[in-house]
Amino acid sequence: MNVFRLAGDMTHLLSIVVLLLKIRTTKSCAGISLKTQELYVLVFLTRYLDLFTRYFSVYNVLMKLIFIGTSVAIFWYMRYHKVVKQTYSKDLDSFRHYHLILGCFLMALLIPFDFSVTEVLWTFSIYLEAVAILPQLVLLQKSRNIDNLTGNYVFLLGAYRALYLLNWIYRFFTEIHKIRWIPWISGLVQTALYADFFYYYIQSWRKHEELKLPA
C-alpha cells in the first residue's frame, strides 16, 4: 500500500471520527444531511459484499467493517436518537436523493464493471459514492452558518477522494499499468464536486472567518 492510499483511507476515517465526535459531544446533527448519510450506508453495503467472498488482508476487512458500522451508527443517531434527531435540519435537507439512487443504478446496469449481480452492485456503489455528497453540499449552501466540525467533516471527505486520485496515478505507473475507467472517472467527478467547497473552506481559513457558502 502506498502513502497516498493510506493517507486517503486515514482521512476518510478521520472524517467519520469528526462527524461522530460532533454528534456524540454536542448531541446535535445540525447541518448534516441525513440523505447523504443514507447514501453512504447504501454505498458501503453494496460495495463490501465481497467481505463474504474474498479475503485481501486484516486491514481491508477491518476498515470495511468500520465503514459499514460507523455509517449505520451515524444514520441511527440522526434518525432514532431521541435528542439528536430533534436537531436534524430536515427542512433544509430537501435534495431528492432517490433520483440519485435510481440514476446510478441505471448507469451501473448500462456500464457495469462486469455483468454479474455483485459487479453491477459494486459499480453502482462507485457511481453513487461520486454523487452522495450532493445533498450535503446543498444543505450547507442553505445553512446560514456552518460550524467548524461540519466544515472539517466535509473537507476531510473531499480530501480523501483527492488523495485516492494521487494513489491511482501512483499505482498506474508502479504496478497496474491499466486504465480503470469506472473508478477513475467517478473519482474525478467526486473530487470535482468539492472544488467550490474547497475554495470557500480555504478562504475562510485564511481570513479566520466563519465558513459560509454563497447561495
Binding site: H12, R54, F56, K64, F67, R171, E175
Partner: peptide, 10 residues
C-alpha cells in the same frame, strides 16, 4: 475474471 488489483481498495 476480476483483477484483484482493482478490488483491494476501499
Amino acid at each position: 475474471l476480476v483483477p484483484t488489483d482493482l478490488k483491494d481498495e476501499l
